[in-house]
Amino acid sequence: MKNTKLVKKRYKMNWGLFILSLPGLAFLLAYYYLPLFGLIIPFKKMDVEKGIFGSEWSGLDNFKFFFNSPDMWTVTRNTICLNAVFICLTLVLSVIVALGLFELSSRKVKIFQTSLFVPYFISWVVGSYVIYALLSPDMGVIPNFMEKLGMTVPNFYSEPKYWPFILTTSYLWKHVGYNTLIFYATLMGMDTAQHEAASIDGANKLQRIRYICMPHMMPTIVLMGLLMIGKIFYSDFGMFWFLPRNSGILYSATDVIDTYVFRMLRVMGNIGMSSAVGLYQSVVGFILVLVTNLIVKKSNKDYALF
């Protein structure tokens, strides 16, 4: 009896909530769902005279250039591996920094947060000048410093082995501030009474973090992780394009799908071909998230994305 009532309540349409969601859904429709007709572009041979719908079907022709290219595996590997490292380290570091900030007085927090956010406003083009200023073999700050210490100075721009590290550092430099703020805000929403009670019970800092803060942040961590996994086949184009400064010798370590396709199509721009790769990136990301979401759902339904 009680059970059916609950079910009924859940399945009764809540019109108030529905109305609240309408403006958002309208924008979603206009900017995301209506343009979906573009998903046919990869399968068309573009002809401006006939328009997108009138153009001839070309089957999978637009996909061939990428899947037959000799570098497809290298760039796919680079994309996934680097992004996986970025996701893990960004999450771990941001959570740690957020916990650290949580322990400090609010005045200090203000200064730290502002400093951590500075890099977010530096575009990668400008960033590439800074990295160059630090690493260039001629006048770079780091090579000069190493020289003073009597070390042999490598030419960073011709040795791929350093680049996974350089790219990861740069990525964290730019994104940790942003993600830290998310976790910090999550901690802000926590019940302080719980904390005080724990502290009275004699729990030390680490125990409080482990038993109170972490469980509280977990849903957000999982959410961020899931969203990031969805984009794992995409990459921060600006970073991968500008930081290696065209040094082709580094491409074995720095080339990702986005930059590779950009270079392939630079001479002969072709909208069908670039859309084909975009579709491939979306589909793979989508499948990955569906699978991860399913796993998450099994362990805790509330953590799942949908």
Binding site: K64, D71, G248, Y251, R266, V267, M268
Partner: peptide, 16 residues
């Protein structure tokens, strides 16, 4: 077209 896309990328990598 496909071959041109591939060699463009190869040139960028080694040519310059």
């Amino acid at each position: 077209t496909n071959e041109i896309a591939s060699v463009s990328a190869a040139y960028d990598q080694y040519g310059k």
